[in-house]
């Protein structure tokens, strides 16, 4: 009797102890591989600038934003058609690379390769990526767009919401269209507290949220209605969180831009596991080297 009772207590205690406590996960240097991080875009008929070449870091590193640029890297841009190589130089004011001579003009429909060599953590790394600039054609159709001054959640005579929208003609050869919506005077004073969600920006900031998550919004779509006419991208009112002026930038982006934009921010599944983003970079590089045709518009949200 006693023997059985003791055995039972021993087994039960063992099971109980083995199902207590906190487990921990250590992510150490084993998972780390140094990489060149590229963040740069080419725009037709515009100088090559703001090509950011930085590095990645192991998890848990304290990162000084002003020290991440690889200022000593070798960065070259090659016109694939002519095979002419243009050497980019580092600008310490913008922490980015640029081409300051006037013998290079980025052209519609042409392909360019970016080659980078850099040393990170005593490792010589190389990365390259090629972008094909979308064709000419992107143009915002102002006649059919709804922009300019609008009252917040303005309605027409029938009570239907008037939604800001950008009508545009497409560029051939583009992989997607991205509308970047930036509130230019975003702060807690211009925040729209009358929003239908009942959200208060002060509560968000108290919980370590970032005002930029409300200040910067985007919409994107695949190429549509390629047979002619114009396409429309609506800006839902839930993307508007501040009164005041907005800058609307419409991009007709290439495939590199499209895949980077839609994958680099979404590497974590809802079940918490991670998966690879899609980067079009060969060698030891991550990030994006893309190109886009752009057009801009403004919007101003007024308080009723």
């Amino acid at each position: 009797m006693k023997k059985f009772a003791y055995s039972f207590i021993l087994i039960f205690t063992t099971l109980l102890l083995s199902s207590c406590g906190k487990t921990s996960v250590t992510i150490d240097e084993r998972t780390y591989e140094p990489n060149i991080v590229i963040n740069g875009y080419l725009y037709p008929e515009k100088p090559v600038s703001n090509i950011q070449i930085t590095r990645n870091f192991p998890i848990g590193t304290t990162i000084d934003k002003n020290q991440i640029a690889l200022s000593e890297a070798s960065v070259n841009l090659t016109d694939i058609e002519t095979n002419i190589v243009y050497e980019l130089t580092y600008n310490p004011n913008t922490f980015a690379y640029e081409y300051i001579k006037e013998d290079l003009e980025i052209d519609y429909g042409k392909s360019y390769r970016l080659d980078i060599s850099a040393n990170i953590d005593n490792s010589d790394l190389q990365a390259s990526s090629t972008t094909t600039v979308p064709e000419k054609g992107l143009e915002i159709d102002r006649e059919n767009s709804i922009f300019g001054d609008l009252f917040y959640r303005e309605t027409d005579e029938t009570g239907k919401l008037i939604t800001p929208q950008v009508a545009y003609k497409q560029s051939e050869n583009s992989a997607f269209y991205l509308l970047s919506i930036s509130a230019l005077n975003a702060d807690i004073h211009t925040f729209i507290y009358e929003n239908p969600f009942g959200l208060d920006i002060n509560d968000v900031l108290e919980e370590d949220g970032k005002i930029e998550n409300f200040q910067y919004r985007v919409r994107w779509t695949r190429p549509e209605n390629q047979n002619g006419g114009f396409s429309i991208m609506e800006i839902s009112w839930f993307q508007i969180w501040f009164y005041g002026p907005y800058r609307l930038v419409l991009y007709a982006g290439d495939e590199n831009f499209y895949h980077f934009y839609n994958t680099h921010r979404n590497v974590q599944n809802i079940d918490g596991n991670l998966h690879e983003p899609i980067f079009h970079i060969d060698g030891d590089g991550i990030g994006v080297f893309g190109s886009a045709v752009i057009d801009t518009l403004s919007l101003n949200i007024l308080k009723k």
């Binding site: 991080v37 870091f57 934003k65 991205l178 970047s180 930038v249």
Partner: peptide
């Protein structure tokens, strides 16, 4: 995660 990097999403 093998590493982290600092970037923006829209240029």
């Amino acid at each position: 995660t093998s590493s982290t990097y600092y970037s923006n999403s829209a240029p």
